[in-house]
């Protein structure tokens, strides 16, 4: 379970999060939507302790994230922009991340799922954007963490890899994981998600379950529905 109370974050003069409130129950899959620059990544990074908020409280499974690091053991994180030590080989990177965590991990099935065997001995500098993203997916999904947070995971993936990723996410859902995902791809939302949370101007603008929207989505598509809600409010 993730709880966010009255979260404020600004970078210099730019107020990005302005009193954001959010609760995500265990075992739920939610999508965080919102225009570019609305603060989705900032919110996610605050949960992970990468960004230090000025005000507010974040609890992950009841533990405050402030000055805490052990709770990250419970989270698999797929960053929007993966930054790797560029001279490491792919297999060295995987080994290093395994070594940094106590949790058991199993990268082999993921490596073969995404056909990464032939890249294991290549250094990260030489990989294409899509291959890097696949490595990124392996690093996140090789641990069996109860919470999975993905920031635009499909960027750079080819359609086949995208289908594989969706299948992976479904398997994790079946294991009862809590999943948070930001994306601009509506098919990802429609196929995987139970609820959408829309962020605008640093606050939750609306929150709706997909079941609730189901009828309208069939008629005008999810984009249409979101546009309609945005006009209404």
């Amino acid at each position: 379970m993730i709880q966010i109370n009255n979260l404020h974050k600004s970078f210099g003069k730019l107020d990005v999060l302005r009193g954001l409130e959010l609760t995500i129950d265990s075992g739920k899959t939610v999508a965080i939507l919102g225009p570019n620059g609305s603060g989705k990544t900032t919110m996610i990074k605050s949960i992970l302790g990468l960004v230090i908020p000025q005000k507010g409280e974040i609890l992950v499974n009841g533990n405050s994230v402030k000055n805490n690091w052990t709770y990250r053991e419970e989270i698999s994180y797929l960053p929007q922009i993966a930054r790797f030590p560029e001279n490491l080989k792919v297999k060295e990177l995987i080994k290093m991340v395994q070594d940094l965590r106590k949790t058991l991990s199993d990268p082999e099935p993921l490596i073969s799922l995404f056909g990464l065997e032939k890249f294991l001995d290549k250094s990260l500098r030489t990989l294409s954007g899509g291959t890097r993203q696949k490595v990124n997916v392996v690093l996140a999904f090789m641990f069996d963490s109860p919470i999975i947070i993905m920031d635009e995971p499909t960027v750079g993936l080819d359609p086949i890899a995208m289908i594989k990723l969706k299948k992976l996410i479904k398997e994790e859902q079946a294991k009862g994981k809590t999943i948070l995902i930001t994306t601009h791809i509506m098919s990802v939302v429609e196929e995987l998600v139970e609820e959408i949370i829309y962020i605008l101007e640093g606050k939750i603008y609306f929150r709706k379950s997909l079941a609730e929207l189901n009828g309208t989505v069939k008629k005008i598509g999810l984009e249409g529905v979101i546009a309609e809600i945005l006009e209404e409010v």
């Binding site: 992970l48 302790g49 990468l50 690091w69 052990t70 709770y71 990250r72 053991e73 994180y77 960053p79 930054r83 790797f84 030590p85 560029e86 991340v97 940094l100 965590r101 106590k102």
Partner: peptide, 16 residues
């Protein structure tokens, strides 16, 4: 030169 390494580490369960 270690900035990338640091960015990878801060997201892991490691004390800052």
């Amino acid at each position: 030169n270690s900035r990338d390494f640091i960015e990878l580490l801060v997201a892991q369960p490691v004390k800052r």
